[in-house]
Amino acid sequence: MLIETLFMFLKVFVVGGAICVIAQILINYTKITAGKILVYFLLAGALLQAVGVYQYIVDFAGAGATVPISGFGYLLADGAIKGAKNSLFEAITGGITSAGMGITAAIIFGYVFSLVFKSKSKRN
C-alpha cells in the first residue's frame, strides 16, 4: 500500500514535471509568452482528449495530468464528449459544466483576494 502510494507520487511528479519542462523549453527556445503557453497547453489537452489519448495519461498519472492546465482542457473536452452522447444541448454545455468549478473558483477567489491584498512593489 505504502509502496503503491509512493510509486503513484513518483508517477505524478515525473509526468507533471515533464509537462512543465515542455513549457519551459518552449519559453527558452521561442518567444512565446506565458499567456500563450497556457492557451496552447489547454488546447493540446482538449485535442488529446478529443482523440482519446489524455484519459490514459490521467489514469496513469492522476494529478500529474489533471493539475497542469492541459488537464483543464481535458476536463472541458471530456464533459463535451460525455454530453454529446445524450443531446445537442449537453454537447454544447457539457464542457463548461465540468470545467465550471475551475472557472468559478478562479473568479471568486480572484475577486476576493484582489480585494484583500495589494500589488507589492518589487525590490528584485
Partner: peptide
C-alpha cells in the same frame, strides 16, 4: 518559469495578479 505557469495554480495567478494590479 514553466514549472509554475502551466499548473492550474498559474492560471489562478494570471487571474489574480491583474485583478490586484488594476484595483
Amino acid at each position: 518559469g514553466g514549472g509554475s505557469i502551466v499548473p492550474i495554480t498559474g492560471f489562478a495567478n494570471s487571474v489574480v495578479s491583474p485583478a490586484m494590479e488594476f484595483k
